[in-house]
């Protein structure tokens, strides 16, 4: 940690501590895959990949690549004892049917009531692509987002109302950022943990949101 913010790895490390023993979890493409590096070794956590596998292991090393065994990012991976394979209909049924415990996603924007925008910036010349983003957004009992709180230009990505096209409505339950952790819901965003010497007032200034707090320490 430097001063009052976490690195991406530190966000992932912190998030990993909140995944309970026995959880079935899906990690979205990109930033969320970092979480797998920090899962506590004394917990058994089963990873789901949308292209049809439970019990996914680490990325395959050179010389052990099986072209038939890839993850949602199309990267060669490995299987762990107890793994299983299934077709796309079943795989997305697992999500939609509420069988996954946790899904971790990246985001362009998250609203204080849990709307998610992570599939399109709405740029008119962009090639649209959605993949499993909308399915994952509504596809787990808990949907966690990890992202930096502010964009590179310093604008808050936790917002009142998403200005990018939404992926799902009211779907994000918790937001892990480099400055703080928030619970999101119909009543708005609640700060549940601060990074370093970050203050709630700083967060209110950055986000322009009311922000509730969860305990006296905050």
């Amino acid at each position: 940690m430097s001063g009052n913010s976490w690195s991406r790895a530190e966000i992932a490390e912190r998030l990993a501590q909140d995944i309970p023993d026995g959880a079935y979890m899906n990690l979205g493409i990109g930033l969320p895959t970092l979480v797998s590096n920090y899962l506590p070794s004394d917990r058994e956590i089963i990873l789901h990949t949308e292209n049809g596998m439970l019990g996914m292991g680490p990325e395959a090393s050179a010389g052990h690549i099986d072209p038939d065994l890839i993850n949602a990012g199309k990267i060669p991976v490995t299987e762990l004892p107890g793994a299983s394979y299934f077709h796309h209909g079943d795989s997305f049924g697992m999500m939609r049917g509420g069988h996954l415990d946790v899904c971790v996603l990246g985001a362009f924007q998250v609203s204080q009531t849990g709307d998610l925008a992570n599939w399109s910036t709405g740029a008119p010349d962009a090639i649209p692509a959605v993949g499993g983003a909308m399915d994952l957004a509504i596809g787990a009992k808990s949907v966690y987002v990890m992202m930096e709180l502010a964009s590179k230009s310093g604008v808050s990505k936790l917002v009142d109302v998403c200005t990018y096209p939404v992926t799902g409505i009211g779907c994000v339950t918790r937001l892990y950022t480099d400055r703080a952790i928030f619970d999101l819901g119909p009543a708005g965003a609640t700060v549940i943990e601060l990074v370093g010497d970050t203050t709630v007032d700083e967060l209110r200034e950055l986000t322009g949101l009311t922000l509730h707090t969860s305990n006296e320490r905050l």
């Binding site: 796309h88 209909g89 795989s91 999500m95 959605v130 499993g132 909308m134």
Partner: peptide, 13 residues
């Protein structure tokens, strides 16, 4: 292009 969320694509099939 008809863009369909992946799970909806699978379930429609």
């Amino acid at each position: 292009l008809e863009l369909v969320p992946q799970g909806n694509l699978a379930e429609r099939i």
